[in-house]
Each structure stands twice: as C-alpha cells, then as structure tokens.
Write a protein that binds this DNA or RNA. Structure first.
Lengths: 270, 270
DNA sequence: ACCGACGTCCCATTAGGTGAGAATCTAGAG
DNA sequence: CTCTAGATTCTCACCTAATGGGACGTCGGT
C-alpha cells in the first residue's frame, strides 16, 4: 500500500523527510505525538521536532489540544488550488447530482494521472451507506471502471504509455491481471461505449463509467456510478449507462466542448 | 496579500523554499517555467530546478505538456485527508443544500483557524453568478459573518486570544477597524443569535452566519448565507437567520451532538 | 518523592545542499 | 536549412545549513 522509497537522481533530503512526515500523519487515523513520528520514520526526535515546528509554522500540520500533530488546513488550501484549473469539478457537480438522483447510487468524477485514477468528486445518494472512497484518493487504472473508460478512448500511443506503467496488482480474484486481458477489455469498452468494473477492485462492488471528452474528443476525465452488485445488476447496466452518457454530454457542453464531428458519435451512441 | 517572510526560531531552509515554490505556483493563474520560478524567488536556476524535480517526484507539482510547472494532485489528496477528520463537511452537505434551496443564495461552511476563517465547503444556487470565494481559501475573522459567529460564542478566554491576533486590516470602508468595535459587534451577535457582515469584506456583499455548536456547546464551525446586498436586504435577515438556525440544528444532531441544556437555547432562539 | 516517557532547546560537527558554470535542448528568425 | 538567444539539464568543489548527541524541563503514574 505504502509507496516505495522515493528514489531518483535529484535529491533534497529535507523534502523527502518532510513529505514522509506528512504521509505518516495522513495515513494515521489519529494524531501522533513527536515520539511516535520520530520512531516511525527513524528520525532523531530533535530532527523530527524541528520539522514539525517548521511544518506547523507553514500550517501544513497543526497541533491538537493535547499536543499531538495532524495534517494542517493549509494543505486543504493548496489542494483546492491544485484542482482549481480543472474547473471541470465545479461544472460537473450539478450534472452528477442529477445522475445520482436518477440512479440512486454513488457517482464519482475521476482524472487520470500516470497509471492511476484520482477521484476529484463524489456524490452519494442521501440514504445510502457511506462508500469507502475518499475524494483525493487514487486507485490503479486497470481495476476501476473510470480507469478503463479513460484508457479505452485515449489515443493509441498515450494508452500504450499508460499500459506500460501499470503493475497489475490484484485486489480481488476478478482483477484484470495481464496487459492482454486489459487490451481485450478496452476493446469491449470501446464497442459498447461504457466501461464496467465487475467486482475487480472490491468484492461486491460493481461500477460503470463513461469518459468525459473535450473539444478534441480526448478523454479528460470519467464519470462512474457504483453500487453493491446486488443492486447494480447486469440487466440494469444499459439503463444506467444511458444516464451516464446523458450526464457526460451535459458536462461536455457545459465546459464549452462543442459536440461536433463524427468521432463524438462513437462514444456517445450506445 | 502575500504573507510575510516565514521567520521563527526553527528553520529548515529547504522547506521554506519548497513551500515558497508551491505558494508561487498556487498564486499564479498560469503554469510557470523554471526560469520564472527561479527569478521570482531569487533562487539559482539550478536550485529551483532540483526543487521542482523533487516536488514532481512527490507529485506535489506536475508539468504541463509544454514543460511548465503547476501544482500537483498529490496536494489535493493531502488536502482531503486533512479535512477528513472534520467529517463535519460530509455530514453538513445535505443540510447546506437544503439551505441553498430555501434561500436561493450561496451557503458557506467555515472553520476558525488562528485569526482566520477557512471555507471548507460552498454550495451555490444553480443559476447564481459564481462567487469569488474558493473552497480552502481563508479570510480574516473580523470582516466575515462566519468569523464573528464563531467568535461570539467562543468562551471568553479563547475569544480574547483570537482577538489579540487580529490585525484589523480593512478591505472596505465598513470593515470593523478596532478591537472595541468588534467587541460591541460580538455582543450584538450574541443577543440576536446570528452574525451579520454588511459589506465589511466586500462592497455590495452581505452575509449572515450562525455557529455550529458541538456537544459541549462550543462552536466548531459556522454556516453562512451570502448574496448581493440588493437581494439580501435588511428585512429578509431574520427570515434567512431562521433557515440558518434550522440548518445548523440539523447538522448538530447529525453529528450526534445532543441538543440538551439551556446554553443551547441562547444560540438557537432568535 | 521518585521514575520514566515525552517534549524543548543548545551547539559542535559534517553531511547535504548550494550555485557557478558548462553542456544540451528548443524555438524562432533570417 | 543554419544561427542565435533563451531556457533547461547536469556536474562538481565548496561551505553553509541541517544534523543528532545530549542536557534540561515537564508531566503523569506509582
């Protein structure tokens, strides 16, 4: 789960350490004391202390009343600036809400980054059980519907690049485990116009997704509907897919992507 | 606008520099090239380069196709972890939506941090003009309704601490400019049960806010309704305040804060 | 009162970061 | 196409800035 050691030609030890601290605090459910941080990261308490103080000055961490540390709200500020450029999120929200109202299941909006998808928004039906996903979290492309939806409609070479970077870890027994299997799946996705994740990420969870295309007909994101397999049944898929297609069409026009050209048809027609 | 130089007893130059880089990229509307970053921060190009490479490895920045840099999505991840603990946000959302539906104006959810308020959520009525605020952004307490709402219901000593840290900058001619004026205003806020910002932050913008109280009857956040002064008129204030009070009562019970005790009455009754 | 765990602070040592500058790449002009 | 200016990438000897050993203070438990 934890990412590998941050190797690389360029190094700034202090930064690696600082981010390790943030990572640690981010992973932890509960705030951590100085001693715990120092021990976990094998830093001298004196060093850990200095880092925490500096991070606190920058409001990247904050102290709870009992003196323990947790992530600070400055990160929240930065995070929101980071996705600001993708104002996609704001524009998409109303459409996602409608989608959720129609399907009564959870909707996600996700972006592709390297070989992972990042969830930038999530809307849940009011009475649903909370889903585990967190906005900002990421998953490998190959075991998510959003990942496959984007990948399937990416130009050949871009897709190939992503393919190469996938490590094909499995999280359930249905997870796609080989590049070839994924390629076949992508072909299928292109044909029917939407991607399916049939318990490939998590047992009992089924998702459908379609890509959001920009003016150049390139996928910039994907929208998905997810729910427990017993509710999101195979028979319902086409109907849900239709809602999805309408939804992304709405987003696209809202973003000012003119839906012209025949390439559009390919992804939109069921 | 830009914060002062990050002085302080504890120093880790590398971190200050790294955050300066992130800050710079965050402020900038458009992605920046290495040369621009180096120049703006008075760093040697080779130093700036190394920082950017390391930051990129950590996905704190990313490169656009033309090689320029902007904030990376890792920050978004961190940011969302940072507010995760405050699951307040998730719980509050449905209530805010209802509030927006009722009032047809923008609603904000904000937290107090040091002497500033941080907006952790915003809901806009579908057809409204976009407001300028950004989730994650912050404003000084003294010129916002949310700030005053929280401050007014904080225990004497906590409030005094915050008071001391305020620098009373003015942004309009109506901005509260002295500690005494603020104290009077807070008294008024306590009496009527809601706080008002009458063009004190921005010309033509009027806001009302009430605090969200936890089980100990301490304010943990505030909810506000904001709109152009010509729509949010003085006569409408009490009506809007009522919607607000209902809204925060909903949030409080949703969070599991038992609404017992007479202290509750003080804030709830208009 | 004593002990142990934790946080804060100081300072001499040296590992780690710095920046001059050379090498390489890129884009635009001629 | 070549030339040139500007930006980016890379290398390395120097020296500053970060390190961590350790002393001191504080809190809570026995």
């Amino acid at each position: 789960m934890r990412d590998a050691i941050p190797q690389g030609t360029y190094k700034v030890q202090a930064l690696d350490r600082a981010f390790a601290v943030l990572d640690l605090l981010g992973e932890s459910e509960t705030p951590l004391g100085l001693a715990q941080v120092a021990a976990s990261l094998q830093l001298h308490k004196s060093t850990a202390h200095r880092f925490l103080m500096v991070l606190e000055r920058h409001r990247m961490v904050e102290r709870t009343s009992n003196g323990k540390f947790r992530l600070g709200l400055r990160l929240f500020d930065f995070g929101n600036r980071a996705i600001e450029q993708y104002d996609l999120r704001d524009r998409a929200q109303p459409h996602l809400r409608r989608l959720v109202a129609e399907t009564e299941e959870t909707a996600h909006l996700a972006l592709l980054e390297a070989a992972r998808v990042i969830y930038i928004d999530k809307i849940e039906p009011s009475r649903a059980v909370r889903m585990i996903t967190r906005i900002g979290a990421s998953n490998p492309v190959h075991c998510t519907s959003v990942g496959k939806a984007i990948l399937a409609f990416l130009p050949q070479e871009r897709a190939a690049e992503v393919l190469k970077r996938i490590r094909f870890e499995r999280t359930t027994h249905r997870t796609i485990a080989t590049p070839d299997a994924l390629r076949t799946e992508l072909e299928k996705t292109r044909r029917r116009g939407y991607a399916v994740d049939d318990e490939e990420l998590e047992e009992g969870l089924r998702c459908i997704a379609v890509p959001v295309l920009d003016a150049q007909r390139l996928p910039v994101a994907a929208v998905s509907v997810s729910g427990p397999s017993f509710r999101v049944t195979a028979q319902k898929l086409p109907a849900i897919a239709n809602h999805l297609l309408q939804c992304v069409r709405g987003i696209s026009t809202d973003m000012g992507y003119v839906p012209s050209g025949r390439a559009a048809r390919a992804a939109v027609s069921a």
